[in-house]
Simulated scan of single mutants.
Amino acid sequence: MRPDSIAVLAKQDEKSRRLPHGWVTPRTETPGKSGWREGRILALLSILVTFLLVFHAAVPNTLGRLGSLLETFLPWLGLTVPGLLALAFLRRSFVALIALLLPVVAWMSLFGGLLLPSHDPAGELTALQHNVSDENPDPAATARVLIRAQADLVALEELTPSALPAFAAAMASDYPHHATRGTVGLWSKYPLSDVRLVDIRPEGVGDGWNRGLRATATTAQGDVAVYVAHLPSVRLGLGNGFSSERRDESAVLLGEAIAAERLEKVILLGDLNSTVDDRGLAPVSSQMNAAGSGFAFSWPAALPMARIDQIMARSAEVTDVWSLPATGSDHLPIAAHVRL
């Protein structure tokens, strides 16, 4: 056979072994080699996501507090699973599909319980927490939204001297008992006593910075210590990363105050500028119970990404938590049932 005939037959053979989109079939490569490589990369990504979910505490805070930043948005790592699933089907990689079970199991073990429906709240009190914003254009309208929730306890932060009278007037008939200290306040359907300031000022902050109070609420189930707190804000920037030093320092002071509380039952309401997974809140969260059902993302109000407003309890159970309609604040209100 002539050399030019051999070349023609070779080209025809190569064309016959190509897929419609121009891909060469496995006959031109080592069988399974390309698929394994693609599957291996996707499997490694699944393992990485699983590691971040399960061992998020191992991510160091030394560089820009990356650990706290990860923990603030930890539930959103679950969004990587649909993307990896789509890629696994696109590559037809059985290895990648099997590996995807790891992050799915990890995510469900951490957050699956929050998806379960809440139970009958009979016999429980309802608590409400809201940072009303010091730039709120209509405090009275915000108060009306909160009143409709019919909560037994209402904690507010960023109460300005100009807005406080509007909240007090609007809520007076539904909440005969209230107390304020600095920019935080507590409205209650239960009698309040032993109201005092809780000093959670970070080092270097002046005396006018008052963001914590404590009161005793006399309920049908006995006396309960109610704390209202507003921890310092965090900042996220290219230069400093996730700046949370002052918040963490304030969390330590709040944790010490709760640890010293003589009453057994404690309810904490506040804008803690931290999620329950963030290690910066550990001095507080290690002593308290968080919600057993519901995500209730509260910030930012326009597109809630994290719940940095918290309702927690000691020697009591926060059974479920939910968010309320938007007000004039950049936070959403949240409410929770608390079983004493």
Rank of each mutant, 00 (worst) to 15 (best):
V195L: 11
A215V: 01
A151E: 11
V49N: 03
L70I: 06
S118K: 07
I308T: 06
A251E: 13
P60Q: 07
A217H: 05
A170I: 08
H56G: 07
N210A: 14
H331Q: 07
E38R: 15
L42A: 03
G22T: 07
D320G: 15
E14G: 00
L340C: 13
A301V: 06
V49H: 01
W209N: 07
L272R: 00
E158H: 10
A127M: 01
L116S: 03
A217K: 03
W23G: 05
E245A: 14
V195R: 08
D194F: 09
A172N: 14
D199Q: 06
S5Y: 14
Y175D: 04
T180L: 10
D278W: 03
I6L: 13
R235Q: 04
P20A: 15
K265A: 05
S274L: 06
L45D: 03
P121E: 02
R92Q: 15
P333V: 01
R2A: 06
K189T: 10
D330F: 02
L42K: 02
L340G: 09
V24A: 13
Q129K: 05
L153A: 00
L192S: 04
G67R: 08
S5P: 04
Y175C: 09
D320M: 13
F73A: 07
A96C: 10
A140M: 10
H230N: 03
T319P: 02
Q221S: 15
L186N: 02
P31S: 03
P161W: 08
A215D: 00
H130V: 03
R148W: 06
L44P: 07
F51C: 11
M312N: 08
R144G: 01
E317S: 13
N273G: 11
W36Q: 09
Q287H: 01
P139Y: 11
P300I: 01
L63P: 05
V54N: 07
R181N: 11
M171D: 08
H130S: 11
D4K: 03
G237H: 12
A217T: 06
V224W: 05
E135V: 14
E256A: 08
V252T: 10
Y175V: 10
D4A: 04
L110R: 08
D134Y: 15
S293M: 10
F51N: 02
S34Q: 13
Q129N: 13
V205F: 13
T62A: 11
M312T: 07
A43D: 11
D194W: 06
N240Q: 13
S244K: 09
A151H: 10
S188V: 04
A127L: 02
L114G: 01
H337I: 02
R196Q: 09
F94L: 13
R214H: 10
A106W: 11
I311L: 02
V224G: 02
P137Y: 10
T160N: 09
W76L: 12
N61H: 08
G35I: 09
H130E: 08
D199H: 06
L125K: 00
P202E: 05
V54L: 15
A215K: 00
A99M: 00
V24D: 13
F111N: 00
L236K: 00
W76I: 05
R40Q: 04
A10H: 14
F167E: 05
R196W: 07
F167G: 00
S93M: 05
H177Y: 15
R17H: 15
T30W: 12
L116D: 02
